[in-house]
């Protein structure tokens, strides 16, 4: 018999996974929505964020450079910048040259970065798994009842995903830059005719999308064991989320990420090992009944 406490724990775990997946899926959606590029390397940017955070915390060292060891909170900034800058290098250096090519070319190009960057990280940090404790500020749990408790750190990760969703929404809908991004995403040629430097705007958007993945990776560090294969694991789920929610939709990314996160965690209670299966079943059902995704066709 499954106890209430176990279900609750798995639910919290699912929400935490959902929050992390959302931070990948939202960047993937942002980049697809504005640049029209499906970035296969997005999971790798998440993984790079995770390793940057590990390095900043002092859990891993870089050959010839050594440990950084500045702690978790500055580590979040390091992770955001590391993933963002790698993203900018990929976009400005390479993807920019294939905007007018077929989607398959773009996918292959970004897949090449998956292979290369995974190996770079493996060579730099080794392929072992790394686990660290949550920062002291968020250690411990909030006790709800005698059998139910909510780990502070997990609550923080879930909160962060909501903050990011709200921030993206506010920026896109109420600021001048957001308006410019919405205009450019719907018609980049007309935006250029009005004087928008479209390549520069694309680079900024790619930075933001990559930085969000980096943030997700850094936040994952105290709740997940980190290996160089992490990028490949998460990108599959991110694409499943994109299909379920509707690619380019932020609300879809949010709902899809939490659906997938919860079904992974709670599903494993029902049938051992079924957790990973349920998102794919959900994806197939969505593809059959509403191929554009739950929030597809709606405005991003």
């Amino acid at each position: 018999m499954v106890s209430l406490g176990l279900v609750f724990d798995q639910l919290i775990t699912g929400l935490t996974i959902g929050a992390r997946l959302f931070l990948i899926a939202v960047g993937l959606s942002l980049i697809f929505g504005v640049l029209d590029v499906l970035n296969f390397a997005h999971g790798v940017l998440y993984m790079i964020g995770a390793y940057a955070a590990l390095w900043a915390i002092g859990a891993v060292s870089i050959p010839f450079i050594g440990l950084l060891g500045i702690g978790f909170w500055p580590g979040l900034v390091v992770a955001i910048l590391a993933a963002g800058l790698v993203g900018v290098l990929i976009e400005a250096g390479f993807i920019r040259r294939v905007y007018d090519r077929e989607p398959l070319d773009q996918l292959l190009l970004t897949f090449a970065f998956v292979l290369m960057l995974t190996d770079v990280v493996k060579t730099t940090f080794g392929s072992g798994s790394n686990v660290v404790d949550p920062p002291g500020l968020l250690a411990g749990s909030l006790t709800l009842t005698s059998s139910l408790s909510l780990p502070n750190y997990r609550a923080f990760v879930i909160l962060m995903s909501i903050v990011v969703l709200a921030a993206i929404f506010v920026v896109l809908q109420t600021t001048n830059v957001g308006r410019l991004v919405r205009a450019t995403s719907s018609d980049r040629d007309m935006a250029a005719l009005l004087g928008v430097n479209v390549p520069r705007l694309y680079t900024v958007v790619f930075f933001v999308g990559a930085a969000l993945a980096g943030l997700g990776g850094a936040l994952a560090v105290p709740t997940q064991s980190i290996t160089p294969a992490l990028g490949n694991q998460v990108i599959i789920n991110a694409f499943v989320i994109a299909v379920i929610g509707g690619l380019g939709s932020f609300a879809g990314a949010f709902v899809g990420a939490y659906l997938v996160g919860i079904s992974i965690a709670v599903g494993s209670l029902i049938v051992a090992g079924a957790g990973q299966l349920i998102p794919f079943i959900a994806m197939i059902v969505v593809l059959l009944l509403k191929p554009e995704g739950l929030f597809g066709g709606a405005e991003a």
Partner: peptide, 18 residues
């Protein structure tokens, strides 16, 4: 080439900003 998802005012604001 009106931006379809932007309102009339927003279409003009984008032009004004740029």
């Amino acid at each position: 080439r009106i931006f379809p998802t932007l309102t009339v005012t927003e279409n003009m604001q984008v032009a004004r900003d740029m």
